[in-house]
Design a protein around this nucleic acid. Sequence first.
DNA 1: CGAACGACCTGCAGGC
DNA 2: TGCCTGCAGGTCGTTC
Length: 272
Amino acid sequence: MPELPEVETTKNGISPHIDQQCISDIVVRNHNLRWPVLSNLAELCIEQTIQSVQRRSKYLLLRLDHGCIIIHLGMSGSLTITNDTSGLKKHDHVDICFENGVILRYNDPRRFGAILWTENPEAHPRLTTLGPEPLGRAFNSQHLALVCANKTAAIKAVIMNAKWVVGVGNIYANEALFHSNIHPETPANQLNTNQINKLCKQIKCVLRLAIKAGGTTLKDFSQADGKPGYFQQKLWVYGRAGEDCLHCQHTIRRINQQQRASYICPNCQPTP
DNA sequence: CGAACGACCTGCAGGC
DNA sequence: TGCCTGCAGGTCGTTC
């Protein structure tokens, strides 16, 4: 599920419930996530207060008095706020319990996600290699131009590589490239300045709109099945193979790239 | 260093 | 109904 907008939505949904709250217990029912959940995680965190809830890339950072819990939702993870200790569902792997009765519950069918603990997130290997936030000032057309220069790889692979810019997943890579009239297989170093500028702008635009759309589901967040959805979000190409381009009425095509689906309008995004 | 690809895991839709 | 195949929003580690 989660691309950057959903992680941001999740952060905004859980933060009011757990910020400044003291952890009373952590229950791990399945340690076997992408990396094993520390067996002493509870010991490390009990009696500590959440000082802040932050997002970096698609990672959520729960900063404690000492140390930090790092959560990644992988492909299928989700966090919900509950106070129901009995109504467990399949794949409810971890509960972070607070003194006020609130439970932050981690569910992840595919277990591609992770719950890590670190003394110092600024030095954590998962975080130190990350590129700039797409919505921040450090991600601009100058940066993107520099990144693309000398790269023969497909532009879609480049913008999905967290080393160069974080948080752009398959959906929004496709959408941003469509709105920029760039074919996803175009070698990065073949893009001209106008295309770079446009792509940079569209990445920001598409992500901002999606966060806005995710935000509309926030009020339901604390309910049991309060999964943020994309129903407010208009997708122009992703998942629309065989349908008409909303811009020019040509038929959207699906191609495979890096063993993942790319969707293009052959008219709006000419082959390189 | 960059680029390509397999790996991790479950659930679901579609075909037979 | 069941079995099989292919596909899914991420990203790490290995290899060339």
